[in-house]
């Protein structure tokens, strides 16, 4: 187990930085998710931690010791990949034993650990069969098992490990991983583009966008107070409404309508926007007038798409809510954010 620290790490694959300067510490025993769209640099960051990629600049520290020059093998980490990697020639049990065997663990210990992991991934009945005849689901479970088999690893890294898993099995594995973390308290870093996977698994979610970390926070923090408009958009479905507004002191103006803010934000120039989640808007007889453009009924709620002073917004209305003839939209107090150049100012 180790505290993993990234010290001014940057990476370039030739032109421009795929990863802009990042300094961050993953605390010992924490469950982290790196969340972002494809191409945001999250896998690069993961591979820098495991040593599969050497950063162009900066240092990687495990418990304060610089491991940047160390090879993957010597960093003592486990990593699970997007697509199942299994050793065709070996049985399921031999696959699981492989990382231990390579490091010369005593046979008794290997047997004990392999047995435990087999039970954990539910493949006891397959222990003696060749791994290559299994389904993609089972193969990925073996990959997961190989990641968990060593007790002394500094960290376990997951690179979109549930991509190939059948949707109906996903939530089970996702919750198993979470339970595993609660039980063993190892440092785990989980890369994904799926908000549900990230928010469900991690205590702390690191949201990445265009090679930068835009916010680190608990699932609740990311939902309630996104630091960047991208976080607001990416977390939640539909994402946060971002409405261009003029700000004067403690008043925002949208399409000629004034909205009272809790207090006056500190403005540093640049474009100003309001951010509010569809869940924090109420359609009714009070508030600012809107015109409805489209209503999506998702059964448990209705997503009302409307026009507010020339800006498209989405409102989440309860299942059996009445849509008034002259609809107005009210902002839930305390949920309105002010963004200057996409970063939260209030």
């Amino acid at each position: 187990m180790a505290r993993i620290e990234l010290d001014r790490v940057r990476h370039s694959y030739g032109s421009g930085y795929a990863l802009k300067e990042i300094s961050h510490a993953f605390e010992d025993g924490g469950a982290y998710a790196l969340l972002g769209p494809s191409g945001c640099g999250k896998t690069t960051l993961l591979n820098i931690i495991s040593g599969l990629v050497a950063p162009s600049e900066g240092r990687v520290l495990f418990d304060g010791a610089d491991v940047t020059p160390l090879a993957t093998r010597d960093r003592n980490i486990a990593q699970v990949f997007q697509f199942p990697v299994i050793y065709d020639t070996m049985t399921v049990a031999e696959n699981l034993a492989f990382p231990l065997k390579n490091r010369g663990a005593p046979k008794a210990e290997i047997d004990r650990r392999v047995e435990e992991i087999l039970r954990l991934i539910g493949l006891e009945h397959r222990a003696r069969s060749k791994a290559r005849g299994l389904t993609a689901d089972d193969k990925q479970k073996i990959s997961l098992g190989r990641g968990l088999v060593r007790e002394d690893v500094n960290a376990i890294l997951f690179d979109e490990p549930l991509t190939v898993i059948d949707p109906h099995l996903k939530w089970k594995l996702r919750s198993q991983l979470k339970a595993l973390h609660r039980e063993f308290r190892r440092t785990m870093v989980y890369v994904t583009h799926d908000q549900t996977e990230a928010l469900t698994f991690a205590d702390k979610v690191v949201v990445m966008f265009e090679g930068e970390i835009v916010q680190i926070g608990t699932p609740a923090e990311l939902f309630e107070t996104p630091r960047h408009t991208f976080v607001g958009y990416f977390i939640g479905s539909p994402g946060m409404n971002v409405i261009p507004a003029r700000i004067d002191g403690a008043t925002a103006t949208v399409g000629g309508q004034a909205i009272k803010l809790d207090r006056a934000p500190t403005l540093t120039g640049g474009k100003t926007e309001l951010g509010i989640r569809p869940e924090h808007l109420t359609l009714g007889l009070t508030g600012l007038p809107v015109s409805i453009t489209r209503i999506e009924d998702i059964g448990r709620a209705r997503i009302v798409h409307a026009d507010l002073g020339g800006n498209p917004i989405a409102i989440r209305a309860p299942e059996d809510a009445e849509i008034p003839a002259e609809p107005k939209v009210a902002f839930t107090p305390g949920k309105l954010g002010v963004y200057v150049d996409s970063w939260r100012a209030l």
Binding site: W171, T196, L222
Partner: peptide, 14 residues
């Protein structure tokens, strides 16, 4: 409660 899944806008409590 067996497990909680969080999608962002909603939480599924199993």
């Amino acid at each position: 409660v067996t497990v909680t899944e969080i999608t962002g806008s909603e939480s599924y409590i199993h």
